[in-house]
Design a protein around this nucleic acid. Structure first.
Lengths: 113, 113
DNA sequence: TGGAGTGTTCGATGAAGACCATACACTCCC
DNA sequence: GGGAGTGTATGGTCTTCATCGAACACTCCA
């Protein structure tokens, strides 16, 4: 029998999708939202694992914000990890780019006009 | 004074957007739909100006189909021209690719799984 | 001139999803 | 233990949009 991983938290870990299992429709739908584009762009401009969910400058309440992060996780765009009471984020640049070459860069580079 | 173009038709010409004036959000939203992806892909596999609107194999009625073509025109993805009673289509490959490099190819190449 | 073929417009309906306020759960530190 | 800080879940509202049926407009040809 395999040993279970040591359980240091009583909080359910966030559910992730790897980009490789994400349909292109899901990826496009996830990126076709102004709030989520903003999240991705701010995340791209910060070192990995440095941004907590509440640290983003978006004009929505925290409930909606939590929802958006769920969509980004499901699309394979964002990875999350619990650090104490906070939840820190990382943009899955390489993995996502391997699955959808150029898409992420397009969103990061384009002027939103 | 410039001469007006000879008017050979009494039907209003379809309204187009050039990809250069299309916000990326509009482009992503236009592509985040299974019916429209199918239209783009079939169009990509046919010579220009050969496909009429009704010639596509999509599971929607003609009213919805007309709506989808309107969205594709507004996103700078499709150009239309009237030919007699029919309306023929052309995928704006080069122009769209110049504005959003790689995006169209991504949609054409990806398995929809 | 009138009918067949093609596509758009209109009005209505139903589903999806973006949002909020509230309540809850978990972690840390005093 | 209790309170502050952080994020999630729930229930409800509102908007957007995909869809349809039906009516309409235009073109071509018999």
């Amino acid at each position: 029998m395999a040993m279970a991983e040591e359980r240091t938290s009583h909080r359910p870990a966030p559910v992730h999708s790897h980009p490789d299992e994400v349909p292109i429709l899901t990826a496009l739908a996830a990126l076709a939202d102004p709030v989520r584009i903003q999240l991705v762009r701010e995340l791209a401009g910060s070192p990995e694992w440095t941004r907590t969910c509440g640290s983003f400058d978006v004009p929505v309440g925290k409930a909606a914000l939590s929802h958006h992060f769920g969509v980004l996780r499901a699309a394979g765009l964002v990875e999350q990890r619990d650090e104490g009471p906070k939840r820190v984020n990382r943009l899955r640049r390489e993995e996502f780019d391997a699955r959808f070459p150029g898409l992420l860069e397009l969103v990061l580079r384009a002027d939103l006009g």
